[in-house]
Amino acid sequence: MQVPETFDYERASNIDDAIALLERHGDEARLIAGGHSLLPMMKLRLAFPEVLIDINDVPDLDHIRIDGDEIAIGAMVRHAAILDSALLAEHYPIFRDAERVIADPLVRNRGTIGGSFCQADPAEDLSAVGAALGGSVVVRSSSGSRTVPMREFHEGPYETKVGDAEILTEVRFPIRNATGSAYEKVERRVGDWAVAAAGAFVQLDGDMIADAGIGLAAVGADHFIVPDAEAALRGKPAIRESFEEAAQLCHDQCSPVTDQRGPEDYKRHLARELVLRALTRATARARGEES
């Protein structure tokens, strides 16, 4: 049995309570939601927070709903709920694609979107989905809420814009017409972190690409994105040659590192291959040719 070091445990009853507890315990405290990243690190004694603040009782953070011209997802929404959401599947099937390959049902039943974003693992799938779609993240502190653009939220591996005594409360994505989205991932085994993964979002104007977003996981893309690749797509015809150009830019501009999941050249190859596949499928969905 692997056991963590001793720690204190607090259970927050609402969001203000959670923020107050964070303020009281300082930077030795960690929020715990699903716990599927933090607890393994604690059990391996790689992380040793002095206090855990459990936010599983905090109400009003588990919604997936339309709010104005955006879809709002509460921070405590579990992966399983994202996978099951008809609303998300209708507007952004990329969520369903990604959730099908995130971990396993046990983890998906506990892990949350807020936890995924805040863990900021460079191989994390929902962060790549968020990067592809754009949108924003709502962060709250005792002085109120602020909104951070999605693509500025991640500052680097395991680093985000969430400061001390702040809590991510909601993730928001704009609703747009004539769009398609898709997610492609290669893993060594079901439940493993991505060797590489790519999410794509495409908005069409007739046969032309009006807008596009690409999110890359596990290949060392800053903020999970390659802006040049997206720029190369805008205004281009939605055909294979356009996708190949963008995919090649992803191949050239990402910075994967060699590890036991694969060497750098293979991961670059995957960046290209998976971006190509994701753009192709996203476009087919935008055209209604695929669900």
Binding site: V186, R188, V195, R261, G262, P263, Y266, H269
Partner: peptide, 15 residues
């Protein structure tokens, strides 16, 4: 034969 090993074998540069 992980995906990387298979792909590299196909490229003629085994891991």
């Amino acid at each position: 034969l992980t995906p990387a090993v298979v792909w590299r074998a196909m490229q003629g540069s085994p891991l």
